[in-house]
Simulated assay, not measured.
Amino acid sequence: MYKSIQDILPNQVVEAIRSVAGDEVAALHEPSFDGNEWLYLKQCLDSTFVSSVGKFVDRFEKDLSKFTGAKHVVAVVNGTSALHIALKLAGVKAGDEVLIPALTFIATANAVTYCNAIPHFVDSEIGTLGVDAIKLRNYLIDYTDQRSGLCINRYTGRVIRALVPMHTFGHPVDIDGLLRVASDFNIAMIEDAAESLGSYYHGKHTGTFGILGTLSFNGNKTITTGGGGAILTNDADLACRAKHLTTTAKLAHLWEFSHDEVGYNYRMPNLNAALGCAQLERLPFKLAAKRALYERYQNAFAKVAGIKLMAEPSKCHSNYWLQTLLLDSENSNMRDSILKATNDAGFMTRPAWTLMHELAPYKECPRMDLSMAQTLAKCLINIPSSAGLVVDQL
């Protein structure tokens, strides 16, 4: 009996994944601990410095600075807190609007609301899965005015203070285009590089282009500190202020507890940093493994019609954090059947996030036309992406 693509494609995707990942159950992205993790954790415990003061916190910040090229790094408890503080340092105030992609993880929007500001959702492009700089420029021309060096939303009267592009699944966004938009419209740019440690745009590490950038080291990221994040900046004053705000705004003194403003208990504990130092030592190997995994998936899916594997943008070097399938638009109605078939086969897959403007807390937020983000949300599938899937074959 003739079988349609609706019958064939889910099975083809399962077999393509199996040809790369093998027959065992495969998680979407799990951490690997194959370096000095146990050694450094024991050293940390033996020192008794397990909270936010200790040599591993300082070392982790220095090692991250060296790896990313950012002049200053401040380690914090997670990527959301990093973005919260970065927004405050960029001058975001209560009642401001902040441009963020509708296609992102909810932490991007939540960090904006922590500042009592309003997320303003913008569209993405298919080549990078990140903010569409050309479409954004045209939108701002039509919907904003410049007054006293500020970008004003013509319809709400609010200041659009910042733009937060996110490097989706590790693929660098069109940074040059977005920097030009930010400059031309007097908007601060902060990079949400939570997913892109080890990704480069035209030879420079992501998170180092805007006035500030942020990273995440959650358990599912390329390297993990359990929970953790970091603020990146080339501005010494901003770095100093970031460290002050994330250490409860406590003034240095041998015994007095004096705080000069509302601060946040956001500093990364030494235990987490010890894990991070060991993970960072193995990062080049993990990145090589993830690139090898991409190449094997690319070969496997080259034979599957109606679907393609996302590749790094031109002149960029992606960390390939999550390997991502993009269904042809005419096959978007098959997304859920593919998700079911793969998960039933023991291969953890997932769709992209629910678009931000569709979530209950953010339904009333301002937004531009989001047609591409809406298309992408129906067509994207993340597949097993752990570096460990190929580590034994390298």
Rank of each mutant, 00 (worst) to 15 (best):
N272Y: 07
N110C: 12
G213V: 06
A288T: 07
L83Y: 10
D23H: 12
F301R: 01
P101I: 01
Q374F: 01
L355E: 00
T233K: 07
V390Q: 03
A249F: 02
Y143E: 08
A242R: 07
K3I: 05
A75G: 12
T104R: 09
R137T: 10
E312M: 06
K62N: 12
L370N: 02
I85D: 03
D192S: 09
L39G: 09
T354Y: 02
N382L: 06
D96G: 00
Y200C: 04
G228C: 09
L394W: 04
L380P: 08
L9R: 00
T113L: 05
N343A: 03
L178C: 02
K135L: 04
N299D: 10
A302Q: 13
K66W: 04
R296P: 02
F49Y: 14
F56L: 07
A194I: 07
G79P: 01
I381Q: 11
Y139P: 01
S258V: 08
R241K: 15
K243E: 09
M189D: 05
R291I: 07
Q393V: 08
T222P: 15
F347E: 03
D58P: 08
A86S: 15
G127L: 13
N234K: 13
E191Q: 06
E61Q: 14
F121Q: 04
Y320F: 14
K290I: 01
S4W: 10
T206N: 06
L380M: 14
D176R: 12
Q323I: 03
L140M: 10
S199N: 12
L359Y: 02
N234L: 12
A239L: 13
G210K: 10
M268V: 12
G219M: 13
T375Y: 00
T156A: 04
Y139D: 01
N234I: 00
K42N: 05
K340C: 15
A86T: 11
G69H: 03
L326K: 07
A341C: 05
P351N: 03
I134W: 09
Y266V: 08
A289S: 09
P269V: 04
R147M: 13
